[in-house]
Design a protein around this nucleic acid. Structure first.
Lengths: 338, 338
DNA sequence: TTGAAAGCGCTAACAT
DNA sequence: ATGTTAGCGCTTTCAA
């Protein structure tokens, strides 16, 4: 880059301006005890006046650490946007910067993590990582890693997640309270998250005394998956058709809703539908999806805290953090018709 | 970070393994001519075998440049997600990495750009930057900057954008063809983009011979803004009520649609609505918004190309790139009722 | 074709 | 309380 970066001021420039050594400037700027108040003020003034900004790359190189937290997300997932915003906020409040990298068809989870690694992030937060555990552990051996939203047991990887089973139970209980008995569940993509939610569904149904009627329909995590699940949900006749459905997540629920509407099955008149995440999607007036809301703020806060704790190596690494979700009732649920 | 980063292999390690100097390894790995094919192969093999990955920070520090493109986006804007995905793809194809940073309530455009700058990005792509031009130029003096989606004239800032006026004209023409005459426009937030789209609306109306009836209603760029615009759109009685509306963007259109529906005004039966962007929002079956689609792929490609060109300093910087949009007709437009 | 050596901008002992 | 002096991992002249 021949580009005209009029070489921004460096530590040395500040040192000269303040009439001290670079070491002193470094100490002052990092708030390390030592320099006298007088020099500190001179240095601060000089830095301010020159518009000095430390070079993270150089700093990271020299100190073998950084205050940058890398986040790997899937931009096509609206819920990830919410999570990331929360993480960014929490990180800023805790004095850290955030760098994002997105998973795409061309750049898988691994490559995304590597990109972040190459930029010397102090720690990585992976949103809903789907790759094999050994893979995650491999990354975890190179840098502190926190998996957000995926339950897994590993020394190498920190975990922050919502209580998915509780969340599904809230949804089922809500439907049961409305009078529903035949409540189906549209499954998610293979993985621990789907396992927990599915189990949560089965247990909640059993707890509600409705264990005789359960139905798990194959689904997925995108709108298309939800759409594809519709026939299986609506199939069968008479009393065997569900009056309500809990979907793996909001996107899935939205696809399901669309397909049902096309089939002449309206929500909540003919079918109650509950989603999971409370993403921006669910909040759209046109959708108005009753859904299990994950506490995004708390998840972000804990994820950053865990990442920082692991990165600084002090204190206990601590067990996984499980955040309770809550139900948000909107307009896709109602008492069963007839 | 005391963390157990088992110090990944360094250039020196590869050099030792291959029995050459670090200088040679550096040359080979960067594909610089010089080393013989034989040494090159040995080096490549050694690097591969050790799982060597260059340290971007060190590399950037030493070479005073990087192959990382920083993108500043607003995660709460679904269209930005689409754009970013396209940019990521294009960058990868052109051999560059992408780092993202999001604008939030706490971290404004400026701070976001600085974060990216601190990580030594070779260039910045700002998605729909809203800050004052001098501000952008200040950043542009420090690093090559490309503004995506905002028309502005400046030596310091490259511009890649859609032909917004043409886009609006497509929308108006579509409505006119359907038989609409009273077509209103819901404005966007203050700025060049809104100016161009508004002018496009006025011109298109004039071209359609409908210049006598025009109406520009204050709006904005979020769902709430669209929602707030509804009363003004629906106000007035008799023949003075519009039969169709073009909104500044999809989010605005979606909010407007919701408010209209609540007021008993259905689309497209009572009112046709056209959005702008063709974001994921518009594609939702529940929304099915007729909208002006920006060519995301092309915009991303050009933005990256412009950023790289500016960063490498070779070739002409070139004028702004304007990409033609096209109309996507879905289900919120139809001939006027009655 | 290859290697030696001097930095890039910063941090971190170790001196003073 | 402050300065000196090595590096961090890489690139890049300049010599060989």
């Amino acid at each position: 880059m021949v580009h005209g970066n009029p070489s921004r001021p460096r530590l040395g420039d500040v040192a000269v301006a303040a009439g001290v050594s670079t070491a002193t400037v470094s100490l002052v700027l990092r708030g390390v005890a030592g320099p006298s108040v007088a020099t500190a003020q001179r240095v601060l003034a000089a830095a301010e006046q020159l518009g000095y900004r430390p070079d993270r790359a150089a700093s990271a190189l020299a100190s073998r650490r950084s205050r940058t937290i890398g986040v790997a997300l899937d931009l096509s997932n609206p819920f990830h946007a919410d999570l990331t915003l929360a993480i960014q906020d929490a990180a800023l409040r805790q004095g850290h910067e955030v760098l994002l990298a997105t998973v795409t068809a061309r750049q898988d989870e691994n490559a995304t993590a590597e990109t972040l690694l190459d930029s010397r992030c102090a720690a990585l937060i992976l949103l809903g990582p789907r790759g094999p555990v050994p893979e995650l552990e491999r990354i975890g051996r190179q840098v502190p890693v926190v998996a957000l939203g995926r339950p897994l047991i590993s020394e190498q990887v920190g975990v922050v997640r919502s209580a998915d089973d509780t969340g599904i139970a809230l949804a089922v209980r809500h439907l049961v309270d409305l009078g529903h008995r035949r409540i189906a569940y549209v499954d998610g993509p293979p993985g621990e998250v789907a396992d927990i939610r599915r189990d949560g569904y089965r247990r909640a149904m059993a707890d509600a005394g409705s264990s005789r009627w359960t139905r798990v329909v194959p689904g997925g995590q995108t709108e298309d998956d939800g759409r594809a699940a519709a026939p299986a949900v609506l199939r069968a006749s008479g009393r065997s058709v569900p009056t309500a459905v809990v979907a793996f997540n909001d996107r899935c629920a939205v696809g399901l809703l669309a397909a049902c509407a096309e089939a002449g099955v309206g929500a909540p008149a003919d079918l109650s539908v509950v989603g999971f995440d409370d993403s921006a999607l669910a909040r759209l007036p046109q959708i108005g999806l009753t859904t299990v809301a994950q506490d995004v703020r708390s998840l972000g806060e804990h994820a950053v805290a865990a990442a920082v704790r692991r990165a600084s190596g002090d204190g206990e690494i601590g067990p996984e953090v499980v955040v309770p979700p809550h139900l948000v009732v909107r307009s896709t649920t109602a008492p069963p018709g007839r």
